[in-house]
Design a protein around this nucleic acid. Structure first.
Length: 632
RNA sequence: GCCUGGAUAGCUCAGUCGGUUAGAGCACGUCCUUGGUAAGGACGAGGCCGCCGGUUCGAUUCCGGCUCCAGGCUCCA
C-alpha cells in the first residue's frame, strides 16, 4: 500500500492504481502529481501528492484547450487526409492548430470540421499516452509524410518521447490531456489565418485554425458574448461614433485625421504632458520633419532602418522624412560643448514621425504610419543612470495612473547571452545598463518580467504594455539605452577633470505614441471619458423654446468658467435629446425648464447615472472642479 | 509583405440565379409638434453597388488585377 495525498486528504491505495480511480467528479480531467502535470490515467507507483485540475485553473484550461486542438487535428486528418500537421498548442484564449494543405480551408470547411469534431467528442475516444523511442516515432511520421513532426522530433534531445493516440489519430505531444474526447463540452472554431512555420517569413505559410472550448454551452456563449461586447468598445468604432478621428482610404492607410473632438482630447493629453515634463526638469525642443540623408547615414538608420523610411528627393540630394527624433535632439545637444554641470540634460519633444509599416500590420490608431512620439532623450553621466531611470519609471506610473491604467505589464528586455555578437556595445556597457535598469525597477518597487534576448541591438530596455478591448497587449512606454548613437555622433561632455567623456543616452517615451495611447485610452474608458478629458463636458438643454434665453446665459457662464460646453435646443422632445446626448457619452447635461428659470437653478443629469436633481449652477461648477483632477 | 475572408447611402445591413426606376432602419434637411430625465409625426434629399480592366447585346452581380478593411503571421510606438 502507498499513501496519496489527494484533495487535501490522505488515502492509502494499492500500488499501480490510476488517478481516475480515486476521483468521482467528472469535472476533473487532469492532475498535478508532486507538481508535475499528468494524465488521470497515470499509474500511481509511490507515495505522492495529487492536485486535481479542472477548468478553473490556468493549467487546467491549458490541458483542456490543448486536448480540443488534438480533436480538431483529428477531424481535419479524417476530412483532409493530405493535410500535414504542424503544431497545435493552447493559447491565452483557446487553441489553434497549424496545417499544411495544398488547398485553402474555406469557412464552410470550418463547419464541416466542427461537425466531425462533434462526432469525435460523441464517440468519447480515450486519449492514450504512448511513451515511444524517438527513432520509432521518426520512422512512423516519415512513413505518414508528416515532415513537420519529423523536424520537431529531430530537435528533441531525449531518446524517448511521448505520443498521444485517439483511435487512429496519433500526435507527437508532451501532454497531458483530458481522459477522453467526451470531456470537451462545448467548442467553436473561430477563425482561419495564415501563419509561417516557426514564425519565420522564409518558411512555408501554414493554415491556422483558431478555436475555443468551454465545459458547458452557457460558458461558451458567455465568452462569445463577451467578444461581441468588446467589439462595442473598439476604438475604431467609438472613434467614428464619437467623431474623434478618421482614417481615409483616399488619403492613405495608417494616417490619422483628428476631428475637432479627437483633437481636443489629444490637446488635453499633450497639455498635461507638457506641464508634467517641464515640472520634471525636461526642456522642450522642436525639430523638423525632414533632414538630409547624410544625417541618417551617420546615425546608422540608413543601414538598419532603411526599409521603414520614406526617402525624398530634394534637388540633387536625398532627404529623409524622419522616422525617429533622436538625431535632431543630438544635433541640439552637440551645438556647443557641454559641461558635466549641465547633466543630466533632458530634451523632450512631441515629435511626429513617419514609418513605412507593412500594410497588413496597420490597425486603427494602434498601428499607424504617421505617429507622434512623446519622445525624450536623457543625456547623462554613467553614475546618474539609476536615478534617472527611476525618475522615468515614477513619471510613467504617474501618467498611466492619471489616465486610469492600473493594470499593465512591465517587461525588461535584455540581450541573449548566447549571441552577444548580435549586439552593439561592450560587455561593460551592457552590464552597467542592465544592472541600472534592474536597480531602477527595484528602487521603484515594481514587478516586471525579464525578457531574455528581447533587447534591441543597440541596448537593453524597459517596456510597459497596455491592453486593448480584446486583451491584446500594445507597447506604450519604452525606456531604451542606446550604445549606438553616442558613438556614431561622438556625443561628449567635459567632466570635472577637464577630459571629454562619452555621455550615456537614454531614449524614452511614456505615451509611446499619442495615436496608440489614445486608441488604448478610448477602449479603456469605452468612450466615456472622465470630465477632465471629455471633449464636450456639458450640454445645456432648454426643455422648451421659452427657456432658450436662460439656457444661452447658462451656456455662457459655463464657457466663462472654462468648461467645454454646448447647447442642444433642437426641436425634439427632451427625452429624445437626453438619449442623444447620453449616447454621445458627454459627462453632464444641464436640463432647464420653467422651474429652473424661476429658481435660477439648473437640473443636473450625469452620464450613466441619470438625474441628480436641481442645484445652483455654482454648485455644479464646484462639483466639476472637484472632479477635474481625474484619478491620481 | 504573406494567409483567409470582405467592400452596396454618413452608419448598420437587405437585394440583384447577368436585364428598365438598387431597398430598409438609424443619422441628415424642411414642416408640424413646445414636450420634465434614454427614440413624437409627416414629407424630403442622399448610391459611378471600392477602383481599373476583361467576358457579354448588356456587369453592382461572372473573371483578373489593384486599393482599402477585418482577423492572424511577421514586424513594431
Amino acid at each position: 500500500m502507498i499513501k496519496v495525498k489527494i484533495d487535501g486528504k490522505i488515502v492509502e491505495i494499492e500500488r499501480g492504481k490510476r488517478i481516475f480511480e480515486l476521483v468521482s467528479d467528472r469535472k476533473f480531467f487532469a492532475a498535478r502529481v508532486n507538481g508535475d502535470l499528468s494524465d488521470l490515467s497515470t499509474e500511481i507507483t509511490e507515495d505522492c501528492e495529487v492536485d486535481l485540475l479542472d477548468f478553473s485553473s490556468d493549467a487546467g484550461r491549458e490541458v483542456y484547450w490543448h486536448s480540443a486542438s488534438h480533436i480538431m487535428a483529428m477531424a481535419v486528418k479524417q476530412l483532409f487526409p493530405g493535410a500535414k500537421l504542424a503544431i497545435g498548442p493552447a493559447i491565452d484564449q483557446g487553441f489553434y492548430y497549424d496545417f499544411d494543405l495544398n488547398r485553402p480551408f474555406s469557412p464552410e470547411d470550418l463547419s464541416r470540421i466542427e461537425q466531425r469534431m462533434q462526432q469525435i467528442i460523441g464517440q468519447d475516444i480515450p486519449f492514450e499516452r504512448l511513451p515511444t523511442k524517438k527513432t520509432d516515432a521518426i520512422d512512423m511520421f516519415e512513413k505518414n509524410g508528416e515532415s513537420y513532426k519529423v523536424q520537431l522530433l529531430n530537435e528533441i534531445e531525449d531518446d524517448e518521447i511521448t505520443l498521444y493516440r485517439n483511435g487512429e489519430f496519433v500526435d507527437l505531444c508532451r501532454g497531458p490531456h483530458v481522459g477522453c474526447t467526451g470531456n470537451i463540452g462545448a467548442f467553436k472554431l473561430l477563425s482561419l489565418a495564415g501563419a509561417y512555420w516557426r514564425g519565420d517569413v522564409k518558411q512555408p505559410m501554414l493554415q491556422r485554425i483558431y478555436g475555443i472550448a468551454y465545459p458547458t454551452p452557457d460558458e461558451l456563449n458567455d465568452y462569445l458574448k463577451k467578444i461581441e461586447e468588446a467589439k462595442q468598445r473598439d476604438h475604431r468604432k467609438l472613434g467614428a461614433d464619437l467623431e474623434l478621428f478618421s482614417i481615409f482610404e483616399e488619403a492613405g492607410a495608417g494616417l490619422v485625421y483628428w476631428h475637432p473632438k479627437g483633437a481636443t482630447l489629444r490637446r488635453l493629453i499633450e497639455e498635461y504632458w507638457t506641464q508634467e515634463h517641464i515640472a520634471a526638469g525636461y526642456q522642450i525642443n522642436m525639430t523638423p520633419h525632414i533632414a538630409r540623408g547624410h544625417l541618417w547615414q551617420q546615425s546608422g538608420h540608413y543601414d538598419f532602418y532603411r526599409d521603414n523610411m520614406y526617402l525624398l528627393p530634394v534637388e540633387n540630394e536625398e532627404y529623409v522624412l524622419k522616422p525617429m527624433n533622436c538625431p535632431g535632439h543630438i544635433l541640439i545637444y552637440k551645438s556647443k560643448v557641454r559641461s558635466y554641470r549641465e547633466l543630466p540634460l533632458k530634451y523632450a519633444e512631441l515629435g511626429t514621425v513617419y514609418r513605412k509599416e507593412l500594410s497588413g500590420t496597420l490597425h486603427g490608431l494602434l498601428r499607424v504610419r504617421g505617429l507622434t512620439i512623446d519622445d525624450a532623450h536623457i543625456f547623462c553621466q554613467p553614475e546618474q543612470i539609476v536615478e534617472e531611470l527611476a525618475k522615468v519609471l515614477i513619471l510613467a506610473k504617474k501618467f498611466l495612473n492619471r489616465f486610469g491604467f492600473h493594470d499593465f505589464r512591465i517587461e525588461l528586455s535584455v540581450r541573449d547571452p548566447m549571441e552577444k555578437t548580435k549586439y552593439l556595445g561592450t560587455d561593460e556597457e551592457w552590464e552597467r545598463a542592465e544592472t541600472g535598469l534592474i536597480a531602477a525597477l527595484e528602487n521603484v518597487g515594481t514587478e516586471y518580467t525579464r525578457m531574455e534576448g528581447e533587447a534591441v541591438f543597440y541596448g537593453p530596455k524597459i517596456d510597459i504594455k497596455l491592453i486593448d478591448a480584446l486583451g491584446r497587449p500594445w507597447q506604450a512606454t519604452t525606456i531604451q539605452f542606446d550604445f549606438n548613437l553616442p558613438r556614431r555622433f561622438d556625443i561628449e561632455y567635459m567632466d570635472r577633470d577637464g577630459k571629454h567623456k562619452q555621455v550615456v543616452v537614454i531614449h524614452r517615451a511614456i505615451y509611446g505614441s499619442l495615436e496608440r495611447f489614445i486608441g488604448c485610452l478610448i477602449e479603456h474608458y469605452a468612450g466615456s471619458f472622465p470630465v477632465w478629458l471629455a471633449p464636450v463636458q456639458v450640454v445645456v438643454m432648454p426643455i422648451t423654446d421659452k427657456e432658450t434665453r436662460y439656457a444661452e446665459q447658462v451656456l455662457q457662464r459655463c464657457r466663462k468658467q472654462g468648461l467645454r460646453a454646448e447647447i442642444n435646443n433642437k426641436s425634439e422632445k427632451i427625452n429624445y435629446r437626453i438619449r442623444e446626448v447620453e449616447s454621445s457619452k458627454v459627462p453632464y447635461m444641464l436640463i432647464l425648464g420653467q422651474r429652473e428659470v424661476v429658481d435660477k437653478a439648473i437640473s443636473l443629469r450625469k452620464h450613466k447615472e441619470g438625474n441628480l436633481g436641481q442645484m445652483k449652477l455654482k454648485d455644479f461648477f464646484d462639483l466639476v472642479a472637484s472632479e477635474q483632477g481625474g484619478e491620481n
